[in-house]
Amino acid sequence: MIDIKNIYKYFGDVHVLKGLNFTIDKGEVIVVIGPSGCGKSTFLRCLNLLEEPTYGEIWLSGDLLTPVDPYLHVDVIKASKTYGKMLKDRLDSGEVLSEELEAEIVAIIKRDDLLKKNEGALYNRLIKEIEAEYRIDINLARRKMGMVFQQFNLFPHMTVRKNITFAPVKLGIMSEEDANKSAEELLAKVGLLDKIDEYPDMLSGGQKQRVAIVRALAMKPEIMLFDEPTSALDPEMVGEVLGVMTDLAKEGMTMVVVTHEMGFAKEVATKVVFIDDGVVQEEATPEEFFNSPKHPRLREFLSKVL
């Protein structure tokens, strides 16, 4: 469902993600853990392009969300002037054209990051063709990806009802009437129907986060992204939010959850992922992940948090 291909993310000199690859299938509940500052939020925010990856591509159900990364397309590399020049030099020096030679040059270009801004008309045309065929508007893609933030980020100037119905109505996905009905149903499910006409600052943290989840669900997303949804909550409110998330997982929602709640990871995740040093260091089922962690950094991390 989501393909993350060789994502790099640089903030100036800070290299947060360094060639991260990952695939998320429909119905999976992925829990992402890792030390603070390792890039979990950056990873999650790259999925819906709240952060634009410096290199790499994100694919959602066959649609390309990022610009084309030429290094991921051999035919694009081969259309570049740089490739043409390197090939000509090699042939001029007496080598014979072969698939091995071609592959070697492509590998060198990838390894040494040799592509430049202007690589000629053919190269540009190929990139345009790929984008024309696969790339979709990010605003359309984001409708399919709900996001829940650590700080809730409810709209303080709107009632709970308006928070939930505003985007679907504004974007023409639902009529006001349908959006209202859907908001009521979803709120009833998370036990907050009586708060529908309140403003967010009348709600507790746990209630705010449940409303934020409902707001994202109201768009009928295919996947839900959670960035430490319980980290800003008082301990007694963590359970109610995790409960809603567990129900959602049981209903088959595809989810990516960054969290420090190891209990949730053990019981609800289909796969647990450890990010460190800018890449996925380990991914496994919860049993394997917690019972026989392989990566030394993960072992060290788990010994601290468990």
Binding site: N48, L50, N139, L140, R142, R143, M145, G146, M147, F149, Q151, N153, L154, F155, F166, A167, K170, L171, R215, A216, M219
Partner: peptide, 20 residues
């Protein structure tokens, strides 16, 4: 976070600026 919440729902930059 307000801009991010608006954008994550699929609202455009302009829609988020205007309404949020």
């Amino acid at each position: 976070g307000q801009m991010e919440a608006g954008r994550s729902l699929g609202l455009s930059w302009g829609q988020t600026v205007k309404s949020i």
